[in-house]
Design a protein around this nucleic acid. Structure first.
Lengths: 250, 250
DNA sequence: CGACCTCTTGAGTGAGCTCAAAAACAGTGG
DNA sequence: CCACTGTTTTTGAGCTCACTCAAGAGGTCG
């Protein structure tokens, strides 16, 4: 298990809310609104289900630290990972806040979360409309990423999909200053996760990873990713970071 | 070309904004705010590009009438349809309102749109925070639909994907009261569109449609869809309408 | 009537799947 | 420190779903 998945969050001071992606460009007044409504912080170990598909979950979360995967189960027992949530991401915001969740969320590493009871969430938005705009912005960014995934799954080969996933995660991590120094990048994933994210078999993911390795494009091993030939990967996938670049709405 | 794609929108009175999905559950005050900021209504013929991938589009739209497809082009000339927009949907809301669009939008039928200059959009949200919440709600619903597509593309067979697309469109249309009476349902699509939406070849879409027809599950022909055996289709896909049901956030 | 779509069908190929099993790698308890 | 167990990775062999190439049928429009 190479890689430290659990760096001490450098942005976690007295009020860890402050530096979160949702609330970054926001004034002190907003922070106070938020602080009032959050239920508190919660630490959970790896492999914990935060909620499951179909449940009437009572809470929404901001992820401070750690990785979470959001996935949907298909009837025959297979699953599709729809999103990897990274520190700063928001979980369980959905059209019908009072209805059943349409996906499951499980931690991939130990994680630190900020918990919001759903009622507070609405109250919070009412009191502080700027937050609602921020939420619209975040959700819109997530939708954009989802569209990128749709394109990938619908129109790219296994090799291209994995390459794109690597570039995307690399970009999302580095643009948030979450990448660590040593050669490569810590991704707390099994080959199985990669397979479930890009819609192929674990076995085929293995073969595809080998081919990427043999072509000296990228090496993923022991939870560490090294992009050996970034230009070639970009060329292969047509990756354009703008898609994932968070810019302020305002 | 069977099917009337262009029913007179029964919700279009003096202020067609009123009944739109975005603004449905909203008070008169809000409607006035909106009316002040919209640029006006626009009618465009079928096959019109509203905007293209990469452009710095200056406008966002509410779709009053007609169908629009949102798609992304991949390097080798293939394309992936990421969303079919139906009357009531919102177009071109994205994280970076001032940046380039990450997809293209083309009408499938003649369409009526309400145009918002992007600056007005932000101004509008500031003046009327409830609208920002509505936007968050809409975007979140679109994201949910996107997740369903991801699951479909990643983990389902061609047959299941097409069946699911049919059930989804059927549900989205009927739940908005947009389905017309005669046997079946008017879908202004070519087989090519179905193929580009579910991530297969046009030729394979044709074969799959034939197989659905031969098994008396669904018939799609001449722009008309008939769900012959809905229970079997639901069984096949595990379709659960909740996913697409719009319920108010408030 | 010819030009152009869209739909349809056939034949052969290939990317990705299934089944099966071995090898590498923890973690556990003695 | 080592045997034991369960998980993850790796490799092989054969199959299938979906793709490519090619061509014909049907419909629409100037």
């Amino acid at each position: 298990m190479a890689g430290t998945y659990r760096k001490t969050p450098q942005y976690c001071g007295d009020c860890p809310v402050r530096q979160n992606a949702l609330f970054r460009p926001i004034s002190l007044e907003h922070i106070q609104t938020v602080a009032k409504h959050r239920l508190g912080q919660r630490e959970v170990p790896a492999s914990t289900h935060l909620y499951r598909q179909g449940e009437d979950a009572a809470e929404a979360f901001t992820l401070f630290d750690g990785w979470v995967m959001l996935y949907r189960a298909v009837s025959d027992g297979r699953r599709q990972i729809v999103r990897f949530a990274l520190p700063g991401d928001f979980l369980r915001f959905q059209p019908d806040l009072y209805g059943p969740v349409n996906h499951s969320a499980q931690t991939l590493t130990p994680a630190t979360l900020c918990v919001f009871p759903r009622q507070n969430l609405l109250e919070m938005f009412r009191q502080n409309p700027e937050l609602a705009m921020q939420m619209a912005w975040i959700t819109s960014r997530d939708e954009t990423i989802a569209h990128e995934h749709i394109t990938s799954l619908g129109r790219r080969s296994a090799r291209e999909r994995i390459a794109l996933l690597f570039l995307e995660l690399h970009h999302r991590l580095t643009s948030r200053g979450l990448a660590d120094d040593p050669p490569g990048l810590a991704l707390p994933l099994k080959q199985e996760h990669i397979a479930d994210a890009v819609g192929i078999t674990t076995i085929h993911a293995n073969r595809t990873l080998r081919s990427l390795r043999e072509d000296a494009l990228a090496v993923f091993s022991g939870g560490r990713l090294q992009l050996l030939d970034r230009p070639a990967l970009v060329e292969l996938t047509g990756f354009h970071p703008d898609t994932f670049t968070p810019r302020p709405l305002l």
